[in-house]
Amino acid sequence: MKRKNKPENNNKNKTSRREFLKKGLLAGAGTVLGGGVVGSFNAFAESGDTIKVLGPDGKVMSVDKSHLKEIGARTEKQMQKEGRDGIPGRKWVKVIDLSKCKNARMCMAACQNAHQLRPDQHHVNVLRMDRGGETAPFFMPKPCQHCDDPPCTKVCPVDATFKRQDGLVLIDNERCIGCRFCIAACPYSARIFNWTEPKDAEKYEDVEYNVELNVPQKKGTVSKCLFSADLLRIDKMPYCVTACPNGVYWFGDENENAVTNGTTKETVNFKKLLKDNAAYVLMPELGTEPRVYYLPEKDRMFPFVYEGSTELKKDKH
């Protein structure tokens, strides 16, 4: 879907200026640069330290350090547009090696930390799977599956949740009306809702909304795993992937046919990894075509120890 993009010229100018400044130069005096600088200068006291900066006309100038402020990242509008388009040429995939997961939950903590979530709100949730019988239970991290045929985006009445060209399914909480149809539609229970004011809401009050991070979270809107789209944009791996101490996560680009392990940083052939390990996806019969692959739960803990006990409390399900 093409989004309208009226102030194109304007944006281009801004971008080129920003790039110029980004390349190792510091942003300088507000009077020279005008609206490009965020914030008010009167709020800063002179520090006495000066620093040399390159002005827009090529002259080197010296300004007081206190007058400097890092240029505000991209504008919300720009982030929205880029966030909806995705990163061209990419097809992100995640491979989760169930034989490695020891329920360290570092992925959950890193994710909650990055996305302004409370401990009971999960973009990625490590589930204790019990298939019954003689088999030992195992742990299964469950992020959003970023399906190629996503049931959630189909039902959204306002295009607040959408599929990008790089395979990610994102949610725009500036547009979400909170009908929760997507939560009902998702068979993986990957979506959460901000039933009350989000954690630390007042701290994030003035933060510009980044659709690729879904922060600040907003009351009355849906949130979900984003494959850390904000990090992917700067060529970094997702929060959960790098936080894992056990080498559970592989992440990469299907187009490159390569995935990298978040713990060991080893890069391997994606298709081969899947084939050699008999990878599978969750509930393929539903036709959702997930972009998250699982390597089988071999090498299970036996006897299974959970919270200091070998006995499992029976789930209702």
Binding site: P187, M283, H317
Partner: peptide, 12 residues
């Protein structure tokens, strides 16, 4: 809704 495909865990 009380019977999703995957278990309800790690929540109050």
């Amino acid at each position: 809704l009380l019977h999703p495909h995957l278990p309800i865990q790690n929540v109050p």
